[in-house]
Design a protein around this nucleic acid. Sequence first.
DNA 1: TTGAAAGCGCTAACAG
DNA 2: CTGTTAGCGCTTTCAA
Lengths: 337, 337
Amino acid sequence: MKSRKGSITILDVAKEAGVSVSTVSRVLNDKDDVATETYEKVKAVIEEMGYTSSLAARSMRSRKKHLIGLVVPDIGFPYSIEVMKGINRAIADTNYDLLLYTTGDVKKNAAALHEQHYVSLLNKSITDGVIVVASAAADFRTDAPIVAIDPHMPNPNYPAIHATNYKGALDAMEHLVSLGHRRIGFISGRPDLESAKRRLKGYQDALQQAGIELDPSVIKTGDFTSGSGHDCAKELLILPEPPTAIFAANDQTAIGVYQAADELGFRIPEDLSVVGFDNISEARFMGLTTVDQFLDEMGYIATQMIITLIQNESLDEPIYKMPTQLVIRDSARTLSV
Amino acid sequence: MKSRKGSITILDVAKEAGVSVSTVSRVLNDKDDVATETYEKVKAVIEEMGYTSSLAARSMRSRKKHLIGLVVPDIGFPYSIEVMKGINRAIADTNYDLLLYTTGDVKKNAAALHEQHYVSLLNKSITDGVIVVASAAADFRTDAPIVAIDPHMPNPNYPAIHATNYKGALDAMEHLVSLGHRRIGFISGRPDLESAKRRLKGYQDALQQAGIELDPSVIKTGDFTSGSGHDCAKELLILPEPPTAIFAANDQTAIGVYQAADELGFRIPEDLSVVGFDNISEARFMGLTTVDQFLDEMGYIATQMIITLIQNESLDEPIYKMPTQLVIRDSARTLSV
DNA sequence: TTGAAAGCGCTAACAG
DNA sequence: CTGTTAGCGCTTTCAA
């Protein structure tokens, strides 16, 4: 960890190479109006001194930074991880790098206010544009472009991408109904989120379409975490007449259902069918039947959108809807009468 | 996406509030030498105008940024994800935020040179210190502190944290031997990495300790990916006398072994026992017996180390060794004779 | 093809 | 308690 005091600046390089700072700057930015000889020399000195320009200083003066920002509430969430995989993949195909900003915890800075703050922070200085995951704000004040993935709001004022949550829930429920289930429990996600609302709506409408009367006692309110899945499933399973199937608002919730079922001696799928939503990688390994909302792909597309925006082109579809698809695995089976 | 042209600066706020820029700056940084009245007024204006200070400009002048940098080669890797979860968890407990820098792809910028570049980039301007995952460099030129997680080198010149790879491999092998296996295949990781070398060494020494002759034909060279696990396992399993157990250098490799076994009609664990290394979340769901190197915890500890360093305190142990632990699941079983 | 010089938005002395 | 001012390291005219 050697560090010359004061750190090497462009001035040091200029002196060492016997040129002016502007010439070094030109070399740094690959301008074509530098003599080959000078160019080589400066390059050599830069290499030799191990000089790296200051991101901060550079960002202050120049327009393009070749950096895309990403604001994620919590990178530990399976949901975020899937999305990030897709963004990562997209970034790898470009000459942009990724700068991810996180506070580590949703609760630490819950408010939409802070989200706005982070977006500004990145977008007005360091970054050419930012992708916001699960944004809560209705609008963003920002200098550079922004794209949201799965915003909390139904009709955000900015470009966004989200899954067909309603259709996905409908598909999941139709599957369960086709398997013969009539008493199907539902564990919802956070009621303040648009995606959760639409999944609930899908559940309700599917029931109606199937001519099954809606029974509020088998609907529980969760919050998209496995803990809530566990607790709600327990309540459902100790009912005098427990449901034969549970549709969980997302896969993490479904994982909680598995735990609860295990604790109460219910076997899956023999005694209880379970369907989730999201298709996170854990779902694959659990053999969970789930609605794939192609999180990875959403990340990929969002990245393409933000790059399009950065290049000053406009988007054909400011709001992109990602079709979902039911993935049938062995956590759900025909109801034996 | 409203954007007043030229973006709003501290000067705009100062004018609007009828004070000088320095006063605004003071309010921004919560200095205590501001009259309450002035403070409130400025705060209100900031709020009203939706002002956010420029990260770039701020970073250039001030010492503390309350930002920890993280350089990861590829955030899509299960390995990186586990580590990030731990860092994320640690960050949530502090008043630091996290800035993650990635190029999306290991191959895009393979060289250690670039790694050094990214570290400098963050550490000399934006960040108070950085954590580097799987660093390849032997040394770092940097102004601010640095901590490496699982560096490629045996004895890096900087603070680092890594698992007891040798001991872990020994444990894994002893388990297999105690189960009665004598013909145990090994699929290594990238031979240029220290962790891979030490795991191989553990495999070899365990064999020797058990009095089993080392057979080079059951040792294959992989690269820590599931693809290599798949290919190497196939070679192993079509051998005239295939091994009864395979120790994979990491869990991703083990996942490849599962696939290969499946394709060739080998059942796990009936026909083949498998042990991995890392204990990534997929391993849990697969029921893979594996050596836990507590990736998550390593991330957590690395974060604590970097914060200690940032606060100008020195580290008790510049090189922290994380003890591994064998996690027994049902992918390995007693060899039936 | 190169250098001099003017800032970018901010913080931190230093005065007042 | 508040304002003035000097830079931080860089890019970018503008001249030479």
